[in-house]
Design a protein around this nucleic acid. Structure first.
Length: 151
DNA sequence: GCCAACGTTGGC
DNA sequence: GCCAACGTTGGC
């Protein structure tokens, strides 16, 4: 049984169009343990991912991606020049893991946060929980299916 | 740009 | 182990 996920990205930094162009992307820079754990322990190659635009004029789900690799150490944690450098991590015992994702499709329209919040079918979804900031989060199968019907 | 909510750090 | 201070996320 495959799991479903949602991953947030700021479109100014990396948008669904960037993923479409590059086809494939290492999801680096996650520095939250819960999000890391989902990538490291929960994700399997082939799992589907909602691509979500955050911190922008119209936050919402804009596309679908797919987990393309197993988890491996995020290279940026070892790079002193990277803003994601973590002096507390070592190659022997890396703190941060990531997966690569690949482009599947761009939705015909943005399914906005506003409509997701207003939809009673999505009660309890991590994304719409008050104060939820997780940038990598699981999506229940029923919620996934329902959201697909909204496109 | 503001600020509420949350996670992390570090003093004690 | 508590909790205040700080930094970050992300909607608005």
């Amino acid at each position: 049984m495959k799991n479903h996920w949602l991953m947030k990205s700021e479109p100014d930094a990396f948008s669904i169009d960037d993923l479409k162009r590059k086809k494939h992307e290492a999801w680096d820079g996650v520095r939250n343990y819960q999000a890391r754990n989902y990538m490291r322990d929960g994700m399997r190659v082939g799992d589907k991912v909602f691509f979500y635009h955050s911190n922008c004029a119209e936050p919402g789900i804009v596309g679908i991606a797919e987990v393309a690799t197993d988890a491996y150490p995020d290279p940026s944690q070892f790079d002193p020049k990277s803003k994601y450098f973590d002096a507390g991590s070592s190659r022997d015992n890396p703190r941060w893991m990531l997966v690569d994702v690949k482009f599947v499709k761009k939705l015909k329209r943005t399914i906005t946060l506003k409509e997701l919040q207003a939809d009673p079918e999505l009660d309890g979804m991590v994304l719409v929980r008050k104060g939820s900031r997780l940038s990598v989060q699981p999506v229940e199968a029923a919620h996934w299916q329902h959201i697909l019907t909204l496109e």
